[in-house]
Nucleic acid binder design. Structure first.
Lengths: 176, 176
DNA sequence: CTGATGATAGTTCGGATCGAACGATGCGAG
DNA sequence: CTCGCATCGTTCGATCCGAACTATCATCAG
């Protein structure tokens, strides 16, 4: 059986697509986008255009199979192939992971001398909003007994948001 | 006086170059790369190739002036132009900032069902190493009475690293 | 002084990422 | 039926990124 196993580089984006597809197969890129919005987006943002692109890329690499809906929008519908499932499993079972990255534009400004108190106001709003959202999702996950991985990952997001809030509160209070 | 004021989009990368240049003007891209490594890299990673590219880009946009060393490597030496200084100041004095982003590949794996305890071991090593490094830099900054913005920004890095460590410790202990 | 060695300095290239903008279909209300 | 809004999907140009490679410089052994 012939299969295109080109040597595409698999990135985090790829595994998001593969992983989400495993959960809600079969799915259109639009479905994945909606699911990502409620789950992975919270700790790994991927713009929606990229999900479409990535599905195409993984399809060409033989990790997804693509069919089209008949009639209507003729939407592309994707499924994991065996190769796709294997790739996901290989990644998942390897405990190595690149170090985490934090990117905070506000911190960058502060680093370069912006007024910390003025920044803090906006950042506190934003992080409190974010925290509230995470906690509400966490409530749903606990109520519905969602997958433990989801709860744990969200737990990290919540912990980090709380830390952001503590940090900006200290800054707003003028502590060195 | 003629000046190219094309409408380049200024990104965080741009402001890192502008901001670092303000501190150690005049400088070659290599100097900036070295300085970034000790400072902004810790909370906003930029690959070195991009610093070269960005200097060129900002030069064309009229925000930097470029001269070449005579003889030797004929290295490019950059300075801020007035336009560059203004752009930096405009950015710095605007208290708006896009929300922070956290990207943790390990969390992503955990989300998709990887064994959390196996992941935790590696993550703890990494974050403890990182924390130690930040604390050592903080020591130097306090001893040398470095800029307050630098200390505050590093303070966030340290707080977040500690939170990461607490989180992965909980995971390693098998807490839900 | 010459050539090996390793650190320093700089560039190229292809592919991944991103966001703005646009184009298309579906569907309910008037 | 058709207007308007929500849904669905794509295109484009610019930016970002990492691997790999080249070139220069300093030093030291031979």
């Amino acid at each position: 059986m012939l299969r295109i196993v080109s040597s595409v580089r698999l990135t985090e984006t790829s595994y998001i697509v593969l992983g989400l597809l495993e959960v809600c197969e079969p799915a259109t890129p639009y479905d994945l986008k909606a699911l990502a919005r409620q789950s992975t987006m919270h700790f790994w943002y991927v713009p929606h255009t990229q999900i479409y692109t990535e599905c195409g890329r993984l399809g060409e690499a033989g990790l997804l199979s693509e069919t089209r809906e008949q009639g209507g929008r003729r939407r592309r519908v994707y499924r994991l192939t065996d190769a796709g499932r294997e790739a996901l499993e290989r990644w998942r079972s390897d405990p190595e992971a690149r170090p985490a990255e934090l990117r905070s534009p506000a911190t960058l400004k502060m680093f370069f001398g912006a007024d910390p108190v003025a920044l803090a106001a906006g950042q506190l709003d934003e992080h409190r909003r974010q925290l509230a959202e995470y906690e509400s999702i966490m409530g749903e996950l606990e109520a519905s007994d969602g997958p433990p991985g989801w709860r744990r990952a969200l737990g990290l997001g919540i912990a980090q948001e709380r830390e952001f809030i503590r940090f900006w509160e200290r800054v707003a209070d003028g502590d060195t």
